[in-house]
Design a protein around this nucleic acid. Structure first.
Lengths: 201, 201, 201, 201
DNA sequence: TATGAATGAGAGTTCATTCAT
DNA sequence: AATGAATGAACTCTCATTCAT
């Protein structure tokens, strides 16, 4: 009984926490970290200013928790798309498609992440890279390695190439016009990358 | 006589202006726009706070003037490297080499520019793109077009490909470790891009 | 219960607001709007600088709220004095007596208002006139009109004469020596005005 | 010869000084003392910022010199109008007519003076009263005294009545609508005052 | 747990004044 | 006499954070 009560409470707390994270995503996306306003975030989430501090000790802790949330969701979205096929080429195409899809459907979260990854604050930037380690692993282990083993991709260093692909993904997916539409399309980018990776002959 | 006096004065003013721009580059690079401190900038340049406002009406105007300064210098550095050879492949290699070189030698200016290009402030971002138009033209007209005409590069849309290359350049050149060394090297990146661009066969 | 709590809180807030308005009156009276210092105001009220901005969005909003407060209090003071007698002559004498009384007892508030009414800032000046509309009505409807109807006052245009009387009141009541004592006394002024208004013969 | 040179120089200096005073009048009228900008004033006069300080040691000194200039001109304008007739009633009417005329023709100077007379700065206010002493004398000695001696005006205290008339003049002449037209006209005001002053019977 | 009044450090900007030219 | 670059004190306003309720 007490257990159940506790669970219900936790669920409520999680709801509040999620509401705050969602509102934070929107605000961090629109304004960037420095200009983001804690008051605006809490109000957007339907709470008062002080409530944020019941869940996150500081503004930066809120951002970093958000980044963790985003990175995990982002990773799961990409992974599930990538592993639906065995073909390394298809996987790479899926990677870019799923990536652009994520940016399109989770605009706020994606932009909050872009802003943080490009932040001049080293701590925030590093936290992003940490949180995105699984994504690098995904590229290296689930796309590049199989491709090289099957002789479809030329031999490359998996980690630095994963970094390059990730850079290309982040760079191209984050460039959008004033209406939020990307300047480049994922197939075009995937095609470009595939030509660069394909084994000769 | 008056002319000479005026010229000397203008030279002095330009010196002050340049000192402020240099200090601003350092501060904007280290802190990003929002955290950059006008007082710190002017002191770094050897002046009092108010002096900044004799040269730039607002903090943002200072940033945008700096971006113009950087973009021009950056462009000139790249252009002079690119046009030393007729060979499109060499030109593309030179482009990345000169690019990474610029980032290495003009660290502050380059980082200030990266921060601005990735800013969540649309006005600042747009200003960057405007200021970098010559660079896009350089890629399209001096590298891609000749390469395609000579049958060395496969046919691509020059502008969107220039955008892609620029994105790759900015993305890869801006990724540096804590000591400021790039994670990827220009030849590796140029090689990757060349494989993607080369005409089949 | 919640209602009671809310009421208590509101009462507290009103106390803070009033304390700020009182401190503001003192400061605006002594220094005028431009030289008035928000920090001084909040400290005088027993609060920190930022607290002012929990109640008034800007310095000018604080001034205008104060003007509204003063105008209402001022009007109520004058009205209650005026309507205690039916006699138009007595009413006019009461008007000036109560007016000088208000200035003497509410020195800060009165001076803050004088400063604002004479401000070179049109917006502030206009706000004063708006806030003092009831006072013009009081003069026209409760003093001049009855006086004319009873044949005690000669026929005059009520509104422009109300304006003239108000001008005379403000002008004479605001002239004080270094110790704050008025140069003219209300009975003298009332007598002067009465002679100008009385019906011939 | 040296004398002549000196005179020419003085004339030049006086020209510069006058240009500065005129520009100051405009700025002090529009903005009030605190918001008036020394740079704006000097530029309006066709000089650089520093030039002001060759003629006036401080901003306030500039204001006070301007007040002296205005008070003298204002007085001369009123005096010459007042003394054209021997009739005290005509003199009083002329006083208000000339007064409103001065405000209409020397709008900037008049408004600068109104702003200063109503300033919360005691020093500035007092300086105004000092500078306007001749005007009080004019009212008392050239209008009220003759009127009383001729039995046209009832007996009043000349100085306090002069103060009252001056207050009424300043109050009514300074009230203008957004187009700068006065709300009351001088004859109306003079008529009001005359009724208050006329000897009974 | 949720609230929101209070805090106060900190920032950008203005501008009277100085002074070397 | 005229200039205008440099100065730096002073000000308004913002906002992350605290804490009593």
């Amino acid at each position: 009984m007490a257990r159940i009560k506790t669970e219900i409470r936790e669920q409520f707390m999680n709801q509040t926490r999620q509401a705050l994270l969602n509102a934070a995503a929107e605000e961090f996306a629109r304004q960037g970290y420095e200009l983001a306003n804690i008051n605006t975030i809490s109000n957007k989430a339907g709470f008062a200013k002080g409530t944020v501090y019941n869940y996150f000790p500081t503004k930066q802790a809120l951002l970093l928790a958000l980044i963790d949330d985003i990175a995990q969701e982002h990773f799961e979205h990409m992974q599930s798309a990538v592993i639906t096929t065995e073909d390394p080429i298809g996987r790479l195409e899926s990677f870019f498609q799923a990536g652009f899809e994520y940016v399109a459907t989770q605009m706020h979260r994606a932009r909050a992440m872009f802003n943080t990854v490009n932040s001049s604050n080293q701590e925030q930037k590093n936290h992003c890279f940490q949180a995105y380690q699984p994504m690098f692993q995904l590229i290296a282990a689930q796309i590049l390695s199989p491709g090289m083993h099957q002789g479809i991709f030329r031999p490359v260093d998996p980690m630095s190439t994963a970094l390059l692909l990730m850079t290309i993904y982040l760079g191209t997916a984050s460039q959008v016009d004033e209406q939020g539409r990307p300047w480049l399309d994922p197939d075009q980018v995937a095609d470009f990358v595939l030509r660069a990776l394909r084994a000769a002959g």
